Simulated assay, not measured.
Amino acid sequence: MAIAMASASLATTLPGLNKAFEITRSSVASVAGFSSSGLKAPRSCPLHGQRLSSSRTVIRQASAATTLEDGSQSETDIVPTPKVIIDQDSDPDATVLEITFGDRLGALLDTMNALKNLGLNVVKANVYLDSSGKHNKFAITKADTGRKVEEPELLEAIRLTVINNLIQYHPESSTQLAMGVAFGAVPPTQQVDVDIATHVNVVDDGPDRSLLLVESADRPGLLVDLVKIITDINIAVESGEFDTEGLLAKAKFHVSYKGKAIIKPLQQVLANSLRYFLRRPTTEEASF
């Protein structure tokens, strides 16, 4: 019953994705029982401007005939890796959302409207170009409070809404996204071995907190699941960043135990718990 309620809750948050969640219900069902109060805004969270390290799993980009924005086809066109980054660290007053898909992204007005339908305000937006393409960044707050998003369920809803829109308006991206199985017309041509792709590391980040780095194969509900596992062993999640990069998800969380950095034995417990869950995301009822 708890599983059904959790799935229904997340599907209600994302009315436009009900059909997709019917396809992936078994994956999303694992959010059941989550009762954390959410991610807290950082007290002073210098992250040294670092992104998570790139995956040790080599995933080749798809090369196939694809439909470009102008409707033309190119047999040699290489589809860039889509990236959706939810950043809770860089702005103390807003959740920062960054979307990258090579140089293919338009104005993303439909994405902004979809975020408003989730009860969010886009208070600031900008675009910049670099060697990896066009980056669209949005500063988002909750419409009812004017504050940044802290609930993991709503952060996951933002992520899935953006990915759904990305696939809808750029169908070729579905071949590069794990979510393409659920939301896209064409599923990804590559598959990630979750055992090989999963990496968990915990390092000291001062006397009052630790830095948790997680990388694994992406799937719906993953952000909520990660926070639930962490909080289930009484570790507090203070802030973080969650990156969707093609078939992979990369999380960076500032964590603490009773207001202090996590000691080595508890770091090992945390790492082992996450590795076990991520490599075995579901359990058959018959095994009980």
Rank of each mutant, 00 (worst) to 15 (best):
A139F: 13
I140F: 03
I140M: 10
T141R: 04
K142W: 01
K142F: 00
K142A: 07
A143D: 05
A143H: 15
A143E: 10
A143K: 15
A143L: 11
A143N: 11
A143P: 07
D144Y: 14
D144F: 13
T145C: 04
T145S: 13
T145F: 05
T145Q: 08
T145E: 04
T145L: 06
T145W: 09
G146S: 06
G146F: 13
G146I: 00
G146V: 01
G146C: 09
R147I: 02
R147H: 09
R147N: 07
R147E: 10
K148G: 06
K148S: 10
K148P: 01
K148T: 02
V149T: 06
V149L: 04
E150H: 04
E150G: 07
E151S: 14
E151V: 02
E151Y: 08
E151F: 05
P152V: 00
P152R: 03
P152N: 02
E153P: 00
E153H: 13
E153Y: 07
E153L: 10
E153K: 14
E153R: 14
E153T: 10
L155T: 00
L155E: 02
E156Y: 00
E156V: 00
E156M: 05
A157G: 11
A157I: 04
I158A: 06
I158Q: 14
I158Y: 12
R159N: 12
R159A: 02
R159E: 11
R159I: 09
R159S: 13
R159W: 14
R159C: 07
R159P: 03
R159D: 01
L160D: 09
L160K: 05
L160R: 14
L160E: 07
T161Q: 15
T161C: 11
T161L: 11
T161D: 09
V162L: 03
V162S: 11
N164E: 09
N164K: 15
N165H: 15
N165K: 15
N165Q: 14
N165R: 15
N165A: 03
L166P: 04
L166Y: 10
L166N: 01
L166I: 07
L166Q: 09
L166D: 01
I167E: 02
Q168C: 00
Y169I: 02
Y169H: 15
H170Q: 14
P171F: 05
P171W: 09
P171N: 10
E172A: 15
E172R: 15
S173Q: 07
S173T: 11
S174G: 05
S174A: 12
S174C: 07
T175Q: 03
T175A: 08
